[in-house]
Design a protein around this nucleic acid. Structure first.
Length: 601
RNA sequence: GGGGCGGUAGUUCAGCUGGUCAGAACGCUGGCCUGUCACGUCAGAGGUCGCGGGUUCGAGCCCCGUCCGCCCCGCCA
């Protein structure tokens, strides 16, 4: 062993002991005589001291002189090993900002294990560094204490999760990374097969089908902390490869899965953040979430709920609202808390924002002593008062309305609602977990001119809907749109952190549901016939859920980006600045894979 | 695929209406300093203004194209 302890593991109990430490030179303070160096490793920082005169307790003044000279010229991030005596710091020189601030090590010998070149960017400051540079020199970036802390939080969270699931009878089973293209869902990452000319593996978007197969195999309870891949464009909270806490259980219904996951999150937040969260979590129906918050991941830490005023304004003479309703749309509003003082210009900016989301415009009515707006003349005084009541608007607020098709209205107002809350500091400090339940089974996708599964094609309908589906030959569009699934999403502070469902475990029902979303029997057999076959041989009722680990850790650490909780993340173009992946490959490799490139200029 | 913002010293940035605009801070190099902890202090070095083209007497600044990064829409649970 090179060392006796980690840098931050020395303390008042070690005073008087001789000790060896290794680490990186974090900061070097040369006072001409005495030299202080902050020595850093994963555990933290220790102050080591070089005195110009040899300590009385040790011999060799000549070596001491050399040591002092070497210490003076140590460059930042050089790796050194020292031995010396742990001493209590002199009265008045303690540093209460660091855990080891009561002590310091008086160095007797110093060896430079590896001198560092000048750094491409400073790692000892809080200042923002270009992310490309950070990713290119990720090994330096990861030395920063906050990055170390994030990775440690991530590791500890995984350990808590594994321990919890182990205690609840789950076993970790690995599933293939080279697998088959997934039905529905996102674009697959493909891997060409050398030995099967023209054939491709796909990287899994999730182990969905495998975990169902494991249930059919009788594994009873499975989990995996597993890498998943989706070849879609990125966002701050989206990476091309990401990690899921994937779990599946047999002989369960929705409440069982929800119970296990609530227990998991409760334990996780307690162990990692010391935070007590109350279970069971609130549940909200999809339909209600859309109505009250305009999306299926409601941030319920604040009010400002959306209200449908279509009924109220029936008799108004405001043509914009009338036209929207006449063409099948609705009018909804949200309360702009404290925004009655907004200037024309500020309102214009809001208008542009909703227009960017697809709305034709934004109607506003300021609530002051009277109602103020170019459009008040179209409404009865009583109607205006009722609007204000519905929206909870007080004097000083501004009512904001969008009139359009329901989806556009919800889209615009849900974002507007979040904006208003952020700008006005209305977001409560208490974490809010909520289950969104009763999702539609399928939805109409205009671009593809068909229905598609909202969750995925293996999601079970509710018991009533199962009966209805099995009892009829076919269903019309209205009937299909009304089907409800046993799917559930877990939402934390307006971010979806996971989702799952009870699966279909009967072959006949699965066939019918596939039919309803327009997947033909032949196509189904070709793409996931193995699952359909498996359902015929004694598949137990089962269901599960997957948590997005990266996003969860991001929320728990307060990181601004997923990239800050992933050791080696990719840029928005899915590139890795450290390794320069993806990159071109040798022609020979392509030939072996039976691939010829066809790149347009 | 579309929209927005950005790219100037090793780093973070400033650079006005095109004309002392090649600048600051930190870092780096060398010196001084025995109790600092973002030590202090003196001196010095350091630039293809992302890249290509254009307008102009003159471009870091204006125009066109392009590359890269970030945020958002589409896409994606």
């Amino acid at each position: 062993m090179y060392r006796d302890k980690g840098c931050a593991q020395i303390g008042i109990d070690d005073v008087g002991k001789d000790i060896r430490l290794c680490g990186w030179v974090y900061r070097n303070r040369d006072h001409g005589g005495v030299i202080f160096i902050d020595l850093r490793d994963r555990t933290g920082i220790a102050q080591i001291v070089f005195n110009p005169e040899p300590l009385l307790t040790v011999g060799g003044p000549d070596t001491q002189g050399d040591t002092h000279k070497t210490a003076r010229h140590l460059k930042a991030e050089s790796v050194i090993i020292i031995s010396g005596q742990v001493c209590r710091r002199p009265e008045g020189t303690e540093n209460h900002d660091i855990p080891t601030g009561m002590v310091e090590v008086h160095v007797k010998s110093l060896e430079v294990l590896n001198m560092s070149d000048p750094l491409p960017f400073p790692i000892d400051e809080g200042g923002e560094i270009s992310e490309t540079l950070r990713l290119k020199y990720r090994y330096l970036d990861l030395r920063r204490p906050e990055m170390v802390a994030n990775l440690i939080t991530r590791y500890k969270s995984c350990k808590v999760i594994r321990d919890y699931l182990d205690e609840h009878g789950f076993i970790d089973v690995e599933t293939p990374v080279l697998t088959k293209s997934t039905p529905e869902g996102a674009r697959d990452y493909l891997v060409p097969s050398r030995v099967n000319a023209g054939a491709f593996y796909a990287l899994p978007q999730s182990p969905q089908l495998f975990k169902q197969i494991l249930m059919i195999a009788g594994l009873d309870r499975y989990y995996q902390i597993v890498r998943c891949f989706r070849d879609e464009d990125l966002r701050a909270d989206r990476q091309p490869e990401f990690t899921q806490v994937d779990l599946e259980m047999s002989f369960v219904d929705m409440d069982d899965v929800i119970g296990v996951v609530e227990g998991l999150l409760k334990k996780l937040f307690y162990e990692i953040k010391g935070q007590q969260i109350d279970t069971p979590f609130e549940r909200i129906k999809y339909k209600d979430s859309m109505a009250r918050f305009g999306n299926d991941k409601p941030d319920m830490r604040f009010g400002l709920e959306l209200r449908d005023v279509s009924g109220l304004i029936k008799d108004s003479t405001f043509k914009v609202f009338q036209d929207a309703i006449a063409s099948g749309g609705i009018v909804k509003g949200v309360c702009g808390k404290g925004m009655a003082s907004y200037s024309r210009r500020e309102v214009d900016i809001l208008t542009q924002e909703v227009q960017a989301m697809g709305a034709k415009g934004l109607a506003w009515i300021k609530v002051k002593d009277a109602f103020e707006s170019p459009i008040v003349k179209f409404f009865q005084e009583g109607t205006l008062r009722e609007m204000a009541d519905m929206l909870g608007a007080q004097p000083g607020d501004m009512m904001l309305f969008v009139a359009d098709q329901e989806s556009v209205v919800n889209d615009c107002l849900s974002r507007l609602r979040l904006d208003i809350a952020k700008k006005n500091g209305l977001i409560g400090a208490q974490d809010n977990f909520v289950w969104v339940v009763d999702f539609p089974l399928m939805e109409w996708v205009p671009q593809e001119d068909r229905f598609a599964a909202l969750h995925h094609p293996f999601t079970s309908p509710t018991d009533d809907d199962i009966k209805a589906i099995l009892a009829t030959e076919d269903m019309n569009n209205d009937e299909r749109a009304r089907l409800t699934s046993k799917a559930y999403d877990i939402v934390l502070n307006g971010s979806e952190i996971g989702g799952g469902s009870i699966r279909i475990h009967r072959s006949d029902l699965q066939q019918k549901v596939l039919g309803l979303i327009g997947i033909k029997a032949e196509e189904a057999m070709e793409r996931f016939g193995f699952l359909l076959d498996a359902l015929k041989y004694g598949a137990p009722p089962h269901g599960g859920l997957a948590l997005g680990l990266d996003r969860l850790i991001m929320l728990m650490t307060g990181a601004q980006s997923l990239r800050d909780v992933i050791a080696f993340p990719k840029t928005q173009k899915a590139a890795c600045p450290l390794t320069s992946a993806p990159s071109q490959v040798d022609k020979t490799q392509l030939r072996e894979l039976h691939i010829r490139l066809n790149i347009e200029d």
